[in-house]
């Protein structure tokens, strides 16, 4: 029952700079950029206050470095014949898979390929897959959510029943069927996951948010100002949906990486290499049965899947605090 003290601090330290615009488009642009930077910094400082936010950033940062490291290593100290993640063969090892050594820090796989190289190479495709799927999801879900909330009626009924249908479909099984019918490469997989997510549950969540935006007086104010449907949807509703969209983008990355791992493990995807394929290779060779003896075949890839998925999930949770001030802890 306590209303938190609400003292608007006009003139506090965090004021944005005073901007003299004058007669110059460039200065107008500069003013806007400085403003955007200002609000970005404000959000950033809240994000960085949350431990899980920092943790997720550190993990994602490490994986990003790994993704960048692979081509550099291939150009410098790794020769293509030995270290190529798909066609390489570790001639220096007698038995394959070989245990970790100085030349192969994570050992080699049953086909004699360097595990570390595979791991680093795959990181990039996991990022590409996750982010593409997330962008597709969010672009579709935001538009569908805004449009069906704004127009209501039959448009709304159509998109919401479609969403129900997609939610009712078992996702992974559907992907298995699709991958049996088509050759799913990384891009198509991202597209399918994105479309399923975009027209599915995320659309419903964003629509309910859009509904609460639609009834705000500033939408009426925009109508009175003379704004048409397009103006209201794209200038007022969607920008206010974006924070939530960004959040679901983070969660979609997680589910895309996870889906890829499952499908690859089942050997259903048309990929050169991925974390899922690494585990798949170990499995088909029967090395999963060997207990912890051949740990380097499974642990690096498994741990990477878990860590990257959790990092994006935790990042989403931390973003939630930026987006949703109610969740913020009071500073004490």
């Amino acid at each position: 029952m306590i209303t938190p003290p609400n003292f608007p601090p006009p003139g506090s330290a965090s004021d944005p700079p005073v901007v003299e615009v004058g007669h110059s488009r460039v200065r107008l642009l500069i003013a806007r950029t400085r403003l955007a930077l200002h609000s970005f910094r404000a959000g950033w400082s809240i994000f960085m206050e949350s431990a899980i936010g920092v943790l997720s950033l550190v993990i994602i940062g490490i994986f990003a470095i790994m993704a960048v490291a692979h081509p550099i290593l291939m150009l410098t100290i790794w020769d293509v014949d030995t270290y190529d993640p798909v066609t390489g063969y570790a001639f220096d090892q007698v038995d394959q898979p070989a245990a970790p050594s100085w030349r192969h820090p994570l050992g080699t796989d049953p086909l004699g390929r360097d595990v570390l190289s595979q791991l680093l190479w795959s990181t990039r495709s996991e990022f590409v897959l996750g982010i593409t799927a997330a962008l597709v999801t969010v672009a579709i879900a935001t538009t569908v959510g805004a449009v069906s909330a704004y127009y209501g009626g039959l448009v709304d009924v159509f998109f919401m029943r479609l969403a129900d249908l997609i939610i009712a479909l078992p996702g992974i099984s559907l992907l298995i069927v699709l991958s049996a019918l088509f050759k799913l490469n990384l891009f198509y997989l991202a597209l399918v996951i994105g479309i399923l997510g975009g027209f599915g549950g995320t659309a419903i969540i964003l629509k309910s948010q859009a509904l609460s935006i639609k009834v705000k007086p500033y939408i009426e104010a925009a109508t009175v100002a003379g704004g048409g449907h397009f103006h209201i949807i794209f200038v007022h509703i969607i920008p206010n949906l974006l924070p939530l969209s960004l959040l679901y983008m983070m969660f979609t990355v997680t589910s895309a990486i996870f889906a890829e791992a499952v499908l690859s493990f089942l050997g259903l995807l048309d990929l050169r290499m991925s974390w899922g394929i690494m585990i798949h290779t170990a499995n088909t060779g029967g090395y999963l049965m060997g207990g912890t003896r051949y740990w380097w075949l499974v642990v690096p890839a498994g741990a990477s899947i878990t860590l990257l998925c959790s990092a994006f999930y935790l990042g989403g949770r931390a973003l939630d605090e930026v987006v949703n001030p109610r969740l913020r802890r009071r500073h004490d």
């Binding site: 003290p5 003292f7 601090p9 506090s12 330290a13 965090s14 009071r330 500073h331 004490d332």
Partner: peptide
């Protein structure tokens, strides 16, 4: 007083 992000509010 209230301790807030912006500083001490002498309420």
């Amino acid at each position: 007083r209230y301790l807030t992000r912006g500083g001490e509010v002498k309420a």
